[in-house]
């Protein structure tokens, strides 16, 4: 069974001004309705759909967490803290896996 990560109970460790980017040379592809990321360390596939896919595609350049949240809120009509929590939890988990990197500087 391939992992399909559940980020719902992940603690958010990033702050709004943290700048996030995809890890360089990270193999990934867009299948149209989902993004598939290959974690080369253990050859594990991660599948991102819906808002997770949207976040990944937005990371075509380094972006701040609050910027990502704002774009997603407008796209999914879901303003408020729950969106911030979901975005930061997702990005934190991706960072733990080495799929994205981040700094804490205010850009």
């Amino acid at each position: 069974m391939l992992p399909h990560p559940d980020f719902s109970d992940m603690a958010a460790t990033l702050i709004d001004t943290t700048r996030v980017s995809r890890t360089p040379d990270q193999p990934w592809c867009d299948l149209g309705n989902e993004v598939v990321v290959l974690r080369v360390q253990d050859s594990t596939y991660y599948r991102f759909e819906d808002s997770a896919r949207a976040i990944w595609l937005l990371l075509d350049e380094p972006r701040r967490v609050d910027e990502l949240t704002s774009v997603l809120a407008s796209e999914y009509e879901d303003a408020g803290r729950s969106m911030v929590g979901d975005v930061t939890a997702f990005l934190t988990r991706c960072a733990d896996l080495g799929l994205v990197s981040h700094d804490a500087t205010d850009g």
Binding site: D25, Q26, P27, W28, C29, D30, L31, G32, V36, L38, V40
Partner: peptide, 18 residues
């Protein structure tokens, strides 16, 4: 991977798969 093209190859496999 050692030839430095793994990322591009994976992206291309995605294009084929899609």
């Amino acid at each position: 991977r050692p030839l430095g093209v793994e990322t591009g190859v994976f992206s291309s496999l995605g294009q084929i798969a899609a």
